[in-house]
């Protein structure tokens, strides 16, 4: 145990400025995402909005949730849950975008069919 004692001490508290700066950056990103969303960016609007959300989430996880100083097991746990959700949503999209599966009775999906026929 004495050989790696220095790894086995409790983390000292992070400085207050770290939390304050993190908070301010998150507020600025919230304001940015609001104003960007009011402009019509077409196909880019969702990637931009989600990109900002991912950056915000990363800041919360790293600094508010202290993952910047946590061990590899914690990081693996986080990664695996996010990976599973990515698999879920990704495969849903692959599935639904490659076959014409009607969710509602045909007459109710008529506008959707019309839209895809146009494009």
């Amino acid at each position: 145990m004495s050989a790696h004692d220095h790894h086995e001490e409790m983390h000292p508290p992070a400085p207050v400025w770290m939390y304050v700066v993190n908070f301010l950056v998150l507020v600025v990103l919230t304001i940015v995402t609001y104003f960007v969303a009011t402009k019509d960016l077409g196909a880019m609007s969702t990637p931009v909005a989600l990109g900002i959300a991912v950056v915000k989430a990363g800041l919360v996880v790293l600094f508010f949730m202290h993952v910047f100083e946590s061990g590899p097991l914690t990081k693996l746990t986080i990664f695996s849950s996010l990976f599973m959700v990515a698999v879920l949503c990704g495969f849903f999209l692959v599935d639904y975008s490659t076959r014409n599966l009607e969710v509602l009775p045909p007459e109710e999906t008529a506008p959707v069919v019309e839209k895809s026929a146009k494009s």
Binding site: L41, T46, V60, F64
Partner: peptide, 21 residues
């Protein structure tokens, strides 16, 4: 609590900002 904040960080663009333009 931070997790609850994280969920909202994604709900906000998906629900509120989707049609904001």
């Amino acid at each position: 609590w931070h997790f609850v904040d994280l969920v909202w960080i994604f709900l906000y663009p998906l629900l509120y900002l989707l049609g904001a333009h």
